[in-house]
Write a protein that binds this DNA or RNA. Structure first.
Lengths: 345, 345
DNA sequence: TTGTAAGCGTTATCAC
DNA sequence: GTGATAACGCTTACAA
């Protein structure tokens, strides 16, 4: 592919290539007539700047790297992270940046994340999903490349996540307002930070409201899938002395499994037991009964991550010091806590 | 960020920079002792090649561009396209390529897709979702950059999509085997190519089997959402002279809406009317009744797209000539066609 | 086998 | 205002 260069333009017009560069970039004043001629000729000849050459001399790119590792069967098809990435993408592209997936290969060569980013002069990185306990990430975060995460992980980098504490309180108070007091909790697996926050807040809430319950009403699921929620619910019902009046579940998928389990055990939701989930996935409004849940604002998380990263790249040093941004959540009421609720199509 | 260069390595060792380059790339034979020393020193000094310099001289990159436009509310959160992209990403990264989202900006400048790709020496492009009727895409496809699409669009470029014809026949025969003959069809909107293929095959099937039915049993939905399926089903039931025994729906989301509509109208699925959808989205196994559907193989589509694009980039000229690859689909039976079917969790 | 030097397409630093 | 020219870091003839 033979490309036209500024030198070709210069030759055709009869000026210096540096003048062409200046005219096209507006870095210095070029006489209006010449400038117009250069711009016209450039267009005419189909000139596009060679980004490699530009990056070489400026020693940087406009590329933001995204780490999206398909761990735990959580790939791009995961709506939650996909939605965040979509919002992030739209925002930063609009600011003139481009997005590249961080890889660990360059042709045949294997590289670490950091090496890969350095070799491409990546100017900032968004962590979406990671390979759990990947030691390479530490090197990246401790490097001088700005990194932010939308996934609460055990790493010392600025993070933008939902307000798990507020969400949990919303759910619990929703139950309490309806005079449900014997409240159970199905929690995300141990290795989930968000799960831990929701679980801790649940415990704290119960303690503060003097609603101490049977320990068996707190069950930690062994995974993120429907069947894990099913098993957790079965365990809770089997082990608990008194049937819970309501269950706060740490994720919608688990809640869906739990509802199935309760049905199979002969209980009705919400008549016998009310359920609240967390996420507001697409499914929530389509299952039977439709699921009351704490909605996470994917769009806002993505946009805030974009803003934060751009400020960070701009040199805002304070960001590195442990920013932990919390995005508000909201309770979406549906049938799983209110049998007379009328769903929209 | 001060980076170490091959020149730094050469100076430290006392050899020529070209020797370092050759040793590190294995492009020519370098004496084993020197080679070892160079490799060690490179590692020691934390050398990473500057990709911009490399791209500049080779006049190309290892970057594959992905066009993912958030049209029709179909962003990255769309499971179907997200899943395809995930599989594609994993495959091509493993082959040493990297993925960048094609943008139309470079800093403050606005560029066309083609200009953007040229300026970065993008070596191939995958079209996932597009801005409908975007004239810029034609320029890109007609350029010498290899482009493949996983979305059947009105463009003359190699395409990898599900076998809509075979899928439709699977669904129709499933009904026919159970002696359902008065079969309706809710079709995707007019502008969908896949929808047209499914619709045409439905018509053809009915004709060939001498199952001519009331015209009102074919309804074209006005969108892709649940409510569009709802409205289509209402229309079908209201307008048809004889109640359909079964409905083949062109997409799961529409099928979900249709089932709701039938319920609201007092009909039971599958007892009164059986339903088959298309896609096998996550939801399909969670709604009530669970949905029998034609499953699309997202993973395979993504991988095949990767293979095809890599061959295309490798110079396989035949690919340009209208390759239209069809990926097999399969019927997944659930309760919406069989009330005694036992769902797994 | 290794060194010298040219060149990739820009931008930046001098001069004029 | 504009033109030479050096420099960015690498690969690759061409020599040695």
């Amino acid at each position: 592919m033979m490309m036209v260069t500024i030198y070709d333009i210069a030759k055709k017009i009869g000026c210096a290539s540096s003048t062409v560069s200046r005219a096209l970039n507006g870095t210095r004043h070029v006489s209006p007539i010449l400038k117009a001629e250069i711009e016209e000729t450039a267009k005419e000849m189909g000139y596009v700047a060679n980004v490699a050459a530009r990056n070489l001399i400026s020693n940087q790119s406009w590329s933001i790297g995204v780490i999206y590792h398909e761990s735990l069967e959580i790939g791009l098809e995961h709506q939650y992270f996909g939605g965040i990435l979509q919002a992030f993408k739209t925002y930063v592209e609009d600011e003139g940046y481009e997005i590249t997936f961080v890889s660990r290969r360059a042709g045949k060569q294997k590289l670490s994340y950091l090496e890969w980013c350095k070799s491409r002069r990546i100017i900032g990185v968004l962590i979406v999903t990671i390979d759990d306990k990947d030691s390479e990430l530490v090197d990246l975060i401790e490097s001088d490349i700005p990194v932010v995460s939308v996934n609460k992980v055990d790493l010392n980098c600025p993070t933008i996540v939902s307000d798990n504490e507020a969400g949990t309180v919303l759910a619990m108070e929703h139950f309490l307002n309806k005079n449900k007091k014997n409240i159970g909790h199905i929690s995300l697996p141990e290795n989930s930070f968000s799960g831990k926050e929701r679980r801790d807040t649940y415990k704290k809430f119960m303690r503060e409201k003097n609603l101490e319950v049977d320990d068996n009403l707190l069950v930690i699921a062994s995974g993120y899938k429907c069947k894990d929620g099913y098993e957790a619910a079965v365990k809770m019902i089997e082990d608990s002395k008194v049937l819970p009046e309501a269950i706060y579940v740490g994720a919608d998928m688990l809640a869906i499994g739990a509802i199935r389990a309760l049905n199979d055990l002969g209980y009705h939701v919400p008549e016998d037991i009310e359920i609240i989930g967390f996420d507001d996935i697409e499914l929530a409004k389509h299952i039977t009964p439709t699921l009351t849940t704490i909605a996470q604002d994917k769009h806002r998380i993505g946009v805030e991550a974009g803003k934060l990263l751009i400020n960070y790249m701009g040199g805002d040093e304070e960001i590195h010091n442990n920013i932990n941004m919390r995005i508000p959540v909201s309770l979406v009421e549906r049938k799983s806590t209110n049998s007379s609720f009328v769903d929209k199509i």
